[in-house]
Computed example of a mutant assay.
Amino acid sequence: AAAAAALQEGFSPAAISEAVSCAACQLVLRDPGRPPEWAQPNKPPGSVHGDSIGVHASDTAHAWKHIVAVSDARNAHAAVILSVWCVARDASIRPASTRSPRPTAAAFAQITATEPQALLSLLDSAIRGQQQDLACAVADRCLSAGITSDDLFGRLLACACSEDGALHAEKYYWTTRDEYQQLRPAFRNQQLVALARVSASQYGSPAPGLQQARELLQRR
């Protein structure tokens, strides 16, 4: 109903799609993590990768946004409404609107490094240690220190390719990278912060077929 009302008021489908993408990203940043009863192999309690509410919502919003971009007016309006419904559905599974988003003040307090290279090393360490909150804070601090988004995305790409993201690793990486390029500057950085969190969550479970692929490539 809210999406239909916004369209009726004259908001463009593209503007609503942008808002939906930002809302989905906030689910990643506010997600408390999987409860024990939802844990599965390679998706332990506290993890947020794979089909978590935020990652699933973000990938869905990203797909609908591209459908909106290539549709006529009638289908674009329908796609926007479905996009809002999908993200609202994921959000309703475990409401997170009252939770503070990452990065947190407590995580920022753990960072003493200021030099770009030291911050990048700390980001690598946080991801390998599966320290989700710290990874978010360090990614945010990296951007503030002048490290470019391309450098950070390049660093996080390795994790997206090497780790088992439960069917969402590469997909979510592309979602955040594409959203970063499309969103207005005020909303971009949260995409990288969210990707850092998901990278830390999925680290430690090698992607199926990774070792075999490496062996086959070495034979050529």
Rank of each mutant, 00 (worst) to 15 (best):
I147G: 08
T176H: 03
T175D: 09
D31Q: 07
T112K: 15
V138E: 04
L82K: 07
K65Y: 06
A88L: 07
R177N: 09
A207H: 07
S125F: 04
L156C: 09
I67T: 06
A96N: 08
L134D: 02
N75T: 01
K43I: 00
E9S: 14
A186E: 15
R184K: 11
E215W: 04
V20I: 15
L82D: 08
Q212T: 14
R34P: 00
N42R: 07
W38V: 00
P185A: 12
A2N: 15
C25G: 06
A105P: 03
V84R: 01
T98M: 08
N75S: 11
T112V: 06
S100F: 03
C22A: 13
A39E: 09
A88E: 15
S17E: 03
A15S: 14
I93H: 11
A139P: 12
V48E: 01
Q132W: 08
R34L: 05
A169M: 02
N42M: 00
S201L: 11
A194I: 07
H49I: 00
H77K: 11
A109G: 10
A3E: 08
D72M: 02
G204H: 07
R141T: 13
L29V: 02
Q182H: 13
Q182F: 05
L195K: 02
A14S: 13
P103R: 08
T104H: 15
Q8S: 15
A145D: 12
P185W: 07
R30M: 02
C136M: 11
K43Y: 00
R102Y: 11
P45K: 07
A109R: 13
S17R: 03
D140H: 12
P116F: 06
G209C: 04
S21N: 04
C22L: 10
R30N: 00
H168E: 13
I81F: 00
C86N: 03
V193M: 04
D178A: 11
G209M: 04
V87K: 03
I147L: 10
S92W: 12
V48H: 01
S92K: 11
